[in-house]
């Protein structure tokens, strides 16, 4: 039981850690100052949530590991994030499309966790829900603005959607860890979140004049850790380089 809970908390924390790091890569190079600051704010929100999720994961595990150790001392095969969030930023449009696709799932997931039988999880979800509500609002506006924008921005957003849509399915596929969480009343069954997500997606994509790909093929293996894409390992060499070069270095 506590093994499954540890897995589950790593999934939540690794999602926010990996996506938070990904969007922090825009810091100083975003297309305009305002978007640069907004992305950095989102990254900081996600890293803040990571500290809570991985901190709790370390407690549940009971082997003396804290959030920093989980973030910086694990290698790629121990990460439990969705494949979607480790995908490279691409252009600004692709970054915002990835953000939108993730935020929609993230918000639904967190809302479900607010009524978790585990009080600490419910408290983290309640704090995160406010931040993520704003993330989704902002990403939605950007997807609509760029999708229904110029010919070039429309094309870039459609390319982004075509490229990232095969990573959407993984968010909603329940496995043994999810089932253990459901039976303990800790977390919602991810597959039950799909209909609302699809309705939200269809409404936004229609307004953005974008076509949802018809193929429902879903890449899997991120949240189970079985098969990450090649990109995560490269990202970790950057994110973890200091701890790899100087183990346990502190300020």
């Amino acid at each position: 039981m506590s093994d499954a809970l540890f897995e589950y908390l790593c999934r939540m924390g690794d999602n926010t850690l990996v996506l938070g790091h990904r969007i922090s890569e825009w810091c100083g190079v975003a297309p305009v100052l305002e978007e640069d600051i907004a992305l950095a704010n989102t990254a900081l929100d996600l890293i803040g949530q990571t500290q809570l999720w991985l901190g709790l994961a370390g407690e549940v595990e009971g082997k003396g590991r804290d959030a920093d150790q989980l973030a910086f001392h694990r290698d790629v095969w121990d990460f439990r994030n969705l494949l979607l969030v480790e995908q490279p930023n691409g252009d600004f449009g692709r970054t915002m499309m990835r953000q939108f696709l993730f935020d929609g799932w993230h918000l639904a997931q967190l809302k479900g966790l607010m009524t978790s039988s585990n009080d600490q999880i419910a408290a983290i979800a309640e704090k995160s829900v406010k931040e993520v509500t704003y993330h989704l609002e902002r990403a939605t506006d950007t997807v609509i603005g760029l999708g229904d924008g110029t010919e070039e921005s429309h094309k870039r957003m459609q390319d982004a959607l075509d490229r990232l849509y095969p990573f959407v399915g993984e968010m909603f596929i329940a496995d043994a860890v999810d089932q253990a969480m459901v039976s303990d009343g800790i977390a919602p069954d991810p597959s039950t979140l799909r209909p609302d997500y699809d309705a939200m997606l269809d409404a936004v994509l229609a307004e953005a004049t974008l076509q949802k790909p018809t193929d429902d093929f879903a890449h899997k293996g991120g949240k189970s850790g079985a098969r990450h894409t090649e990109h995560l390992g490269h990202m970790l060499t950057q994110m973890q380089w200091l701890q790899r070069a100087y183990p346990d270095a502190t300020w």
């Binding site: 100052l33 305002e34 907004a38 609002e137 506006d141």
Partner: peptide
């Protein structure tokens, strides 16, 4: 001051730039 495409975007950008 800041740049934004429309009023709604300006409020969102203001939230990120000035009310952190």
């Amino acid at each position: 001051s800041l740049h934004a495409a429309d009023a709604e975007g300006a409020i969102k950008n203001a939230r990120d730039v000035y009310t952190r």
